[in-house]
Amino acid sequence: MTATIIGTQGLTKRFGAITAVDGIDLDVREGDVYGFLGANGSGKTTTVRMLLGLVLATSGTAEVLGRPMPRDGRHVLPQIGALVESPAAYPRLSGRANLRVHDALAHGRRATRKGRVDQVLEQVGLAGVDERPVAAYSLGMRQRLGLAHALLGEPRVLVLDEPTNGLDPQGIREVRDLLLQLHRGGTTIFLSSHLLAEVEQIATRVGVLDRGRLVVQERLDVLKRPTGRTYVRTPDVAQARALLDGQVESYDERSLLVRVDDVAALNALLVRGGVRVSGLAPERHTLEDVVLEAAGASSDRFES
C-alpha cells in the first residue's frame, strides 16, 4: 500500500468563536499531486500552516512523513519545500543573494552552493535575474523566487500555497510544467489553490475544503467519471433528433448530447438511419461540477 505522506485526524483550528478548520482528515499519499481546493477564506492557508508547524492546532493531530507535527518539525522540515502566502525574502538583497543566505542558514554545503542556487533559478525562470534588490521585484518574480527557495534543498515533499499567484498565463504554464517534471521525478506535491482549471491539469487526487470542512477527498479520475450521457457529432442533427426522440438532452448545429446506456447500439441505430456520425464521446463530470456541488457554492467563489 502506498505510504501516507501527509495525514491528519480531526484537525481543527479555532480563532476565538470562529472555526477556521473543522475536524478534517487529510490523506496525501506518496507520489500524489494533491490538489487542495477551496474558495478564498475556506481555511486552506490555515491548514497548510498547521501542517508546517507555523500555527498550532486547537485539536486533532497531523503527521508529515510519518512523524507528528509540530513536535518532530526539526526532522521533517528539512525534507519539505514550502511556499506559503507571500514569499519571505530580505528586500534589500538580490534574489540570488537571498537564496545563498537561505542555503547557508539551512546548513547547505558551501562548496556546491552556487551550483544549487543557479539550478533552482533556472528551474523557476529567473536564470537571467540581475542584482537588483527583491524590493524592486514584481509579485510574479517574488512568487518565482519563493518557489526557488522551496526547491533549494531538493525536497521529498513540496507544500505550495497558491504558487501561481501574480503570474501571467505564460508563467502559470511554466510553473505547471515544472511541477509535473518534479512529480515525474518522484516528488510528492501538496498544492493549495482556488484555481480549478490549473489543479485539474496536474492533480492526481483532490481534496475540497468548504467553510473549514473537507467535503471531498478522492482520486481525480474517479471524480471525473462519465455522466451517462454521450456527445454525438454529426452534420445530420435534425435527422438524428428524429431517430432519438426523447433521448436528446441538448443539441446545436453540429452535435447532440444524448442519454444512452449502450453507445454501440446508439451508433448502430444512427448508421442504420442514414445519419453520418463523425464522433461519439462520453460526457464526463468536470472538476468544477464536482467542487461546486460538494461545496454548495456559487461559481464566483472559485476561478476556472
Rank of each mutant, 00 (worst) to 15 (best):
Q123A: 13
L145F: 08
Q143P: 00
T112N: 14
Q119G: 07
V117P: 03
L121T: 02
L105Y: 15
T112Y: 13
V117Q: 10
L145R: 01
G146S: 04
A111K: 14
L105I: 14
A106Y: 15
G140F: 10
R132L: 04
T112V: 12
V134H: 01
Y137V: 00
A111V: 08
A106F: 13
V120Y: 07
G125R: 05
Q143M: 04
M141A: 01
A135C: 09
Q143V: 02
E122C: 09
G115F: 14
G125P: 09
A135M: 11
R132W: 07
R109E: 15
A127K: 13
R132C: 02
D130R: 03
V134P: 00
S138L: 06
V117H: 10
V124M: 02
E122N: 12
K114P: 04
R142H: 07
H107W: 12
E131M: 03
R116P: 06
Y137P: 00
T112P: 06
Q119K: 11
V124K: 00
R142Y: 05
R109S: 14
V120M: 10
Q123W: 15
G140H: 09
V120G: 02
A136K: 13
R142V: 03
M141V: 04
A111H: 14
R109C: 07
A106Q: 15
L126M: 11
Y137A: 00
D130Y: 05
R142T: 05
L105A: 15
R109W: 09
G108D: 07
V120H: 05
R144G: 01
L121M: 13
L126R: 05
V129K: 00
V129M: 10
V120A: 06
V129W: 04
K114H: 14
R142S: 03
A135P: 04
S138H: 12
Y137T: 03
R110V: 05
A127N: 13
G125N: 09
Q119P: 01
L139M: 13
L121K: 02
Q119M: 11
L105P: 11
L121C: 07
L121F: 12
Q119I: 03
R113V: 05
L145A: 00
P133C: 02
G108A: 06
S138Y: 08
L139H: 12
D118H: 11
R109D: 14
Y137E: 05
H107C: 10
G125I: 01
R113Q: 14
L145V: 09
G128T: 05
A136T: 15
A111Y: 09
G108M: 06
L145W: 04
V124I: 05
Y137F: 14
V134A: 01
T112R: 15
R110S: 11
V134D: 04
D130E: 10
S138P: 03
V124F: 03
E122R: 09
D130F: 02
G108P: 03
L126N: 06
M141C: 04
Y137H: 04
Y137N: 00
R142I: 06
A135G: 10
L145M: 11
V129I: 12
P133D: 08
P133F: 05
R142A: 00
Q123H: 12
R116T: 02
R110L: 07
Q123N: 13
L145S: 01
P133A: 06
G146Q: 00
E131R: 10
H107V: 07
G108K: 01
